[in-house]
């Protein structure tokens, strides 16, 4: 299997992950499921960034997308932690665990 094909497999996988996550954001009602759905979207984006490191058939992997992925993961982790903390607090205060009313 040559390099170009590997690259395309990664990209296809990232598109599938992104779409799955996006669908989950719209369809899931439970707090935790929706938070996980955004994480799956994020995984798709990061996978595409990692695979773009093989641009232009360079001899070595392009470090710029790797730096972006590291930054992106840090941001995504803190956002997810914040979302989980909020969801837990809502559950403690009201006992609710999903978006029942709308959207």
């Amino acid at each position: 299997m040559n390099a170009m094909e590997t690259y395309q497999i990664y990209l296809t996988a990232s598109a599938v992950l992104f779409t799955t996550g996006l669908a989950g954001v719209f369809m899931a009602r439970h707090f935790f499921r929706r938070i996980v759905a955004t994480k799956i979207m994020g995984a798709g984006v990061f996978l595409s960034l990692v695979s773009f490191a093989e641009r232009d058939a360079l001899e070595f992997a392009d470090p710029v997308p790797h730096a972006m992925v590291i930054t992106g993961i840090v941001v995504a982790v803190s956002a997810a932690a914040f979302a989980l903390a909020l969801a837990r607090r809502i559950h403690q205060l009201t006992g609710e665990h999903d978006f029942t009313t709308d959207s």
Binding site: L22, V25, F31, R34, I35, T38, M41, G42, A76, A79, A80, F82, A83, L86, A87, I90, F99, S103
Partner: peptide, 10 residues
């Protein structure tokens, strides 16, 4: 706020 955060992340 949670709804806003999830929209913002998405």
């Amino acid at each position: 706020g949670l709804r806003y955060l999830l929209v913002a992340i998405t």
